[in-house]
Simulated assay, not measured.
Amino acid sequence: MDHKVSFTMDIFEQFDKKWALLTAGSMEKFNTMTVSWGGLGTLWGKPVATVYVRQSRYTHEFMDNGEYFTVSFYPESCRKILGVLGSKSGREMDKMKDSGLTPEKAGETVTFQEAEVTLVCRKLFRQTLDSANIPADIVNQYYEGQADHDMYIGEVVDILR
């Protein structure tokens, strides 16, 4: 990664209020989903992005099977599209067909031309969040009868604008 690239944003606002797209796979076969849980930081001396994916999500298969993924951020004008991409499954429909987004190659994986910023990440780590280690009120709110999340940490190897 070119460490001279400057990247600034209110990351708390970006993930929680504006959302992002997590995309994994190749141009031939990929899936994308909206994520509102994530973070950026430094781990093992590397710039990293962390995302969380329910084990029941179709994108989870692509995350497990691939070495790279992207986290991409969009203008407010794309919010409705991100809402649809976060509520429909790529197992049951072609989410990209009606999204209006234009897929494009990003290193070994995929992003979209409409993105304001794309982080290209190489997967470094995956772990299932253990509900025994999460406060009961959070388990009750987010996991009652639902699939667990896996946490993925990826080294940010490129930043595309």
Rank of each mutant, 00 (worst) to 15 (best):
S56V: 11
S87H: 14
L40V: 14
A20H: 05
L43S: 15
L40N: 09
F30L: 05
M63E: 08
G66C: 13
F12S: 11
K29M: 05
T118M: 02
E61D: 13
P135G: 13
C78S: 04
G90D: 08
G100K: 08
F73A: 09
T102Q: 05
D10W: 13
R161D: 06
K105G: 10
E114F: 01
G107S: 03
M9W: 10
K123I: 08
L101C: 04
G83M: 02
Y143P: 06
H149I: 15
K95L: 00
E61C: 04
C121V: 10
F7C: 14
T102P: 03
V117P: 01
S72V: 04
R79M: 02
S26D: 10
V110I: 09
D137A: 14
F62E: 04
E114K: 02
T118I: 03
A132Y: 11
F15K: 08
V84H: 06
K46H: 12
M1W: 02
N140G: 15
G145T: 09
F30W: 04
F112M: 00
G41C: 13
G41H: 09
M27I: 14
T70E: 04
A106C: 07
K123A: 06
F112K: 02
T32V: 11
S89F: 04
E116P: 02
V117W: 10
T42G: 03
G38S: 12
G90P: 05
E92G: 11
R54H: 06
F15H: 09
C78E: 11
L82C: 01
E104K: 12
R122C: 11
A49N: 10
H149P: 12
D94N: 10
H149W: 07
I81K: 00
R161G: 04
L40S: 00
I138G: 13
L22V: 15
V48M: 13
Y52S: 15
E67C: 03
G107R: 03
S131V: 12
F125W: 14
F30H: 13
S77G: 02
L40P: 05
N65H: 11
V5P: 03
T102Y: 00
D148W: 07
F73L: 07
S6Y: 05
E28Y: 03
D158N: 12
S6C: 07
I159Y: 05
